[in-house]
Nucleic acid binder design. Structure first.
Lengths: 151, 151
DNA sequence: CTGTTAGCGTTGACATCTCAACACTAAGAA
DNA sequence: TTCTTAGTGTTGAGATGTCAACGCTAACAG
């Protein structure tokens, strides 16, 4: 409609032509991440009335058996202390987790939280397949794993 | 105990190397994106007293010659209208851009804004190379470009 | 016992992002 | 003209992320 200027504005062009500028390659990376993120969250968290950080915390707690030290949660996610603290405060108000002092602080799933993550978990795997891995060949996935672990 | 089959997957499965599950592959994707983003921003925007959204807006305005319709800015970035509006309000208060009504709204770099983006631009390219493309082989970059454009 | 140090978590202020609701303009239909 | 519709931008509220400053606890030295 408006971008008839033959150069800018079209990220698709930047992508197919990314070999020329590292910055365009980085833009394509950001765009791909954002697109997949939005689709996966729409199919999982949003469909269950949860936010993305809610889902991230709940999934990690569930994988660890239902409770974790707050610092371990932070470390396993690569999150800041204050970010975890604020997020758990919000989730506590909504009844998804509880916190108890025991040396550090131990975070535990409530029944409500366990119910929520149990309901979402299978859909999460399905959504990631549908929006990401199903669109890639086995060899591409291998390459990406190698690349991601190097960064 | 929720993951009765999560880690007990038969060894003969011999999945394509690392990421046993799509969800783990997705986590690695998110982590890689976040790591590169943090490093690039630290070396560019933060070093110049700008935020990431500041830098994104300024770079796009500069590439377009210094001014753009607000709606075109939003379209070229894939951002929401309200997001652009709030961000430009903040940047306007800091003297980086001006806005004028002309049918729609035209956004223009101030001298201050142009100075800022001009100072950062070369460092941006360098940072992306250092933290991203220099760590990848030409073939890997080719593969990633193909993957990103498919998503 | 007292002071120090380090680790862990909280809090408040502020920046950012999203959503819903509203306002303004332009173009076309009645 | 008047009404309607679409496109565009703003605003306010709430959720989220980041930073600096603070409080608490444990370990340890004096």
């Amino acid at each position: 409609m408006s971008t008839s200027n033959g150069e800018a504005a079209a990220p698709d062009e930047a992508m197919t032509d990314a070999a020329c500028e590292p910055v365009d390659f980085w833009s394509a990376f950001k765009r791909a991440h954002e697109v997949v993120r939005a689709r996966v969250i729409a199919d999982t968290a949003e469909a269950a009335g949860l936010s993305e950080p809610d889902l991230t915390i709940l999934a990690n707690l569930d994988k660890a058996g239902g409770s974790l030290r707050q610092s371990e949660l932070a470390a396993s996610l690569g999150w800041d202390r204050t970010r975890i603290s604020h997020q758990l405060t919000r989730m506590g108000k909504r009844g998804l987790v509880t916190r108890e002092r025991a040396g550090g602080v131990t975070v535990t799933l409530t029944d409500s939280g366990r119910t929520a993550i149990t309901a979402v978990h299978p859909g999460l795997d399905t959504a990631v397949r549908r929006h990401l891995t199903d669109k890639l060949s086995a060899q591409e996935i291998e390459t990406l794993i190698s690349v991601f672990s190097r960064l």
